[in-house]
């Protein structure tokens, strides 16, 4: 591993440890003041669980975004461009609707609805984007946008059909939040799947590098494009779906983390995947740190709002920087 790559990964890890330490130590007092102190034992879990969730969701969304940017050959692609967020939202809204109307959710919980919606949407996008020679990136973006719009319409129909109170619950879910109470089994399973997915994409790094060439060039140097695109789609989608399952729709991490990592490491995807995972985890951990500190009079902000504010500004910066090329 080159010195620059090692130095970058060490730097990002130190940054991540700083964010983790801050999250563990930071506390808001009843009078609103902020202190840094080792938490009492009974409160430790309430900080460790969201912290672990932030690591899983941030790393997974970051690498998912990177995979999709390679798959779609679009540096502004993110997990949400394929309709994942709106699909999950429709699943949650449908769960709420069925519970209200029939007294049963059919899928267990809102998380079940989110996963079902996300997987259903992604499957639809995948099927509609397939061509004789495999996934067509441009078709996939267009299908993703159209499916997003259709899911959005479905959400509005269901919102119209449920009482006002339920609309509030749905809006809260849409803002995204890290769980403070979650089973260790679920965290372990989703964490393990995320690490496995990240390791797979890192392993495929050289193929991802070659897949950044045009279709003809990539094929001519020996890349099996249909196979790597299908694999990337599946693993990237699963990583993003895990994020939705744990924290709801968290915007912009999947877009910004790969770009942040590229600033340090360039385009080689084996090391870039690792750096992107750490960068994504950093983003979410620091966003969680910020929400512990910022209070606009209504308690702690949902983490999705913090990532949206940070991400929106960075996104605009990216657009302005790349306006000649995008």
């Amino acid at each position: 591993m080159k010195i620059r790559t090692t130095a970058t990964i060490v730097f990002l890890l130190l940054l991540l440890f700083a964010g983790i330490a801050l999250r563990l130590l930071i506390a808001r007092q009843v009078d609103g003041s902020i202190t840094l102190a080792i938490p009492e034992q009974e409160f430790v879990l309430y900080r460790v669980v969201p912290l672990i969730s932030a690591l899983i969701v941030g790393a997974g969304l970051g690498v998912s975004g990177m995979g999709l940017q390679v798959l779609l050959r679009n540096s502004l692609a993110s997990p949400w461009i394929l309709g994942l967020s709106s699909g999950a939202g429709l699943g949650v809204m449908a769960t709420m609707y069925f519970e209200h109307t029939y007294g049963a959710t059919f899928v267990g919980s809102e998380s079940g609805g989110a996963i079902l919606g996300a997987v259903g949407t992604l499957s639809l996008v995948y099927i509609l984007s397939r061509r004789r020679t495999g996934i067509d990136p441009m078709t996939m973006v267009l299908v993703g946008v159209v499916v997003s719009v259709l899911c959005g319409a479905g959400i509005m129909v269901l919102q119209h059909a449920v009482p006002m109170g339920l609309r509030g619950s749905f809006t809260t879910w849409l803002m995204g939040s890290l769980p403070e109470v979650e089973s260790w089994w679920k965290l372990g399973t989703l964490g393990g799947a995320t690490v496995f997915g990240i390791a797979l994409i890192s392993w495929w790094g050289p193929t991802l590098d070659a897949a950044c060439l045009s279709d003809d060039e990539a094929t001519s140097v020996g890349v099996n494009l249909p196979r790597i695109r299908t694999r990337l789609f599946l693993v990237s989608s699963i990583l993003a779906a895990i994020g939705v399952m744990l924290a709801g729709p968290i915007a912009f991490v999947g877009l910004i983390a790969p770009h942040g990592a590229r600033l340090f490491l360039g385009g080689s995807h084996r090391s870039l995947t690792i750096a992107t995972a750490i960068m994504g985890a950093c983003l979410l951990v620091f966003a969680d740190d910020i929400r512990q500190i910022v209070d606009i009079g209504s308690g702690r902000l949902p983490i999705g709002i913090v990532t949206s504010v940070i991400g929106g500004v960075v996104f605009l910066g990216l657009l302005l920087r790349n306006r000649g090329r995008v």
Binding site: V70, R73, S75, P206, T207, D209, A210, C212, L213, S214, D216, E217, V221, G222, V223, R262, G266, G267, S268, H269
Partner: peptide, 22 residues
């Protein structure tokens, strides 16, 4: 190709190295 296309942040050397991918 008539026009070579690369979508990542690669150096010219890296692009040439991709010829040895397989």
């Amino acid at each position: 190709p008539r026009i070579a296309e690369v979508s990542g942040a690669f150096t010219i050397r890296t692009v040439v190295e991709l010829g040895r991918y397989a």
